[in-house]
Design a protein around this nucleic acid. Structure first.
Lengths: 162, 162
DNA sequence: CCTCTTTCGTTTGTCTTACTAACGTTGGTG
DNA sequence: CACCAACGTTAGTAAGACAAACGAAAGAGG
């Protein structure tokens, strides 16, 4: 009956949780995301940042000088949330906001030296967070997990935009 | 260079996202959790409920009459959030709250007929949400994903409590 | 029996993420 | 020129997670 089931350790921890939930992928996903978020938030907090800031800094680093709207599309954020995060990053001197001469609706956002340093700091801190997140998984399992998560995420981002 | 890499479809959707993020398990996880949460929230909303309500109803169904504190431990919720959710469920007639005669600090919470019906409704709606969440995955991948998520979640819940 | 600590239910409030609605400005199109 | 779309911005909301404090009650140790 349970020879193929979960390891002993698993049951010990999970037996106080309803079986409905334990078997539900969306629950496993959202609950594990809480831990993932906690781990990376702790990493960000040490540098006085949060998730939105990292998304914007890494987008700027990869795509160069772009408008706030593009920034939002790259990092999966709402325009209104981009405004707030860009404000905060500008106050910290991590980026600069200049009006686009070719389109006066747009603000061109560019990464500063300070922003690059902050990004590198966050990258390092995040690496450790990834390690503790995946700690109990073997290398091949980590790869398989990453592949499947990416596959699912691509599917849902595609179907949502259409 | 990319023969072993992601399928074409994947890149199409993801190419506007920083490579840093695409490769980061914690990002894939939290972003996919957004979709998982959206899908199940829509299912809940049709029945006038939300996640906290389902956690409590399913805990009551599996563990019978328990105190609010136990309810919180079963469904991974803070005591203060249990109070609010139990209030709302009581207003809807889904459960009853009676003082424990053996321990006057405790409230014993029990599921009503209405609550059981609501739970069955939510179960059905959630099943569809799971299907659309995992739609692009083959059956064996779904099983592998569920196994790994459970393994990771058990690990982090264990290490957090200690 | 009397402290000391713990547990319980409750209130209040904060943080992060996500998202919606509206507004004025500007660009592009028919 | 009229109309619509995009942009930046402000304001507000919802859900989930969590921290701090409170009085009331139970339990433990001396």
């Amino acid at each position: 009956m349970d020879s193929l089931a979960m390891p002993t350790l698993y049951r010990e921890v999970m037996e106080q949780t309803p079986a409905r939930l334990i078997e539900m992928p969306s629950w496993l996903l959202t609950q594990l995301a809480v831990h993932a978020h906690r781990l990376s938030a702790e990493a960000f907090a040490e540098a006085g940042a949060r998730g939105y800031h990292y998304r914007i800094l890494s987008s700027l680093d990869e795509f160069g000088v772009v408008s706030q709207a593009e920034l939002g599309r790259h990092s999966n954020m709402d325009r209104s949330d981009v405004v707030a995060a860009v404000n905060e990053l500008a106050e910290q001197g991590c980026l600069e906001r200049t009006p686009d001469p070719d389109d006066r609706r747009r603000n061109l956002v560019s990464l500063t030296k300070t922003g690059e340093e902050q990004l590198r700091r966050l990258d390092r801190a995040l690496d450790k967070a990834q390690e503790s997140l995946l700690e109990p998984l073997a290398a091949e399992d980590r790869a398989a997990l990453t592949r499947m998560l990416g596959q699912l995420l691509a599917h849902h981002q595609r179907t949502q935009r259409s």
